[in-house]
């Protein structure tokens, strides 16, 4: 309930400021509302959102899969960690923009380049978190599994996954938000569609109504995914934990 209140305050503040300023550069909530409805009717907004969402899902999936594998290997093996750690540091410190430019120059101005560039930007963060999670795996439980001759499948399903679940949840939450922000940049620079592309052309026309309506729609979409998908999965993974009193 407090959340709704706080959002309402924000919208009211926005409406009041817009009414006071009376400028084309700060449209009020009502103008934005009608713009959004018009854009949805024309099919423009759903189309660009779908383009962006597809890229988000693609690069998120690639980053998570590679990141889990690499992070797990680096957490388990000191040798792997020693070899891969310098690369990781280079990746972490690589500005997103540089990766994007490299991808477009080397691979070409296409979908593969766009998705890979975003995945590479997100990857080091997943690796770091999953490596941390792997290092925190309980060696006593590993011993127990060894004594009772757990199969590899049982170990992954019943011992490793439950312990990594909180780390997985943490990296997918931060992952989702990082990924969609970078996807917009990728689209702005080198794609003919998607929310980032629309924001770029709206910027050159100083079309604040479009910018605000697309930004709001996309934030809402991400919030919906977060609360309908990420949070329930997290709750499920933590079902066994006793609630703090």
């Amino acid at each position: 309930m407090t959340k709704v209140y706080s959002l309402a305050v924000l919208i009211v503040a926005w409406a009041v400021t817009a009414a006071l300023v009376q400028s084309r550069l700060l449209p009020g909530p009502l103008t934005i509302g009608t713009t959004i409805i018009a854009d949805i009717r024309s099919g423009e907004l759903p189309f660009h959102m779908a383009c962006t969402l597809g890229r988000v899902i693609g690069s998120f999936a690639i980053a998570m899969l590679l990141g889990i594998a690499a992070g797990y290997a680096m957490g388990r093996s000191k040798t792997a960690d020693r070899y891969a750690d310098p690369w990781l540091i280079v990746l972490i410190n690589m500005p997103a923009l540089v990766t994007i430019i490299f991808a477009y120059v080397w691979i070409g101005l296409n979908e593969t380049a766009a998705i890979l560039a975003v995945a590479v930007n997100k990857l080091p963060n997943v690796i770091v978190v999953m490596r941390e999670g792997t290092r925190a795996l309980d060696p006593d439980i590993d011993d127990m599994a060894k004594v009772f001759q757990f199969t590899a499948f049982k170990r992954i399903r019943h011992i490793v996954m439950p312990q990594l679940a909180p780390y997985l949840a943490a990296s997918s939450r931060s992952g989702l938000s990082i990924v969609w922000k970078i996807v917009l940049v990728v689209e702005l620079i080198g794609r003919p569609n998607g929310v980032g592309f629309v924001l770029g052309s709206a910027f050159s026309l100083f079309d604040m109504a479009s910018i605000l309506s697309y930004a709001i729609c996309f934030i809402v979409l991400m919030l919906v995914i977060e609360s309908l998908l990420v949070q329930p999965l997290e709750r499920r993974a933590n079902r066994w934990r006793r609630r703090p009193a």
């Binding site: 006593d140 439980i141 011993d143 127990m144 009772f148 019943h158 439950p162 066994w240 934990r241």
Partner: peptide
Amino acid sequence: GMVFQEPRLLPWR
């Protein structure tokens, strides 16, 4: 079969 000093059960099962 082994019984460890701490029970070493999986807390999530």
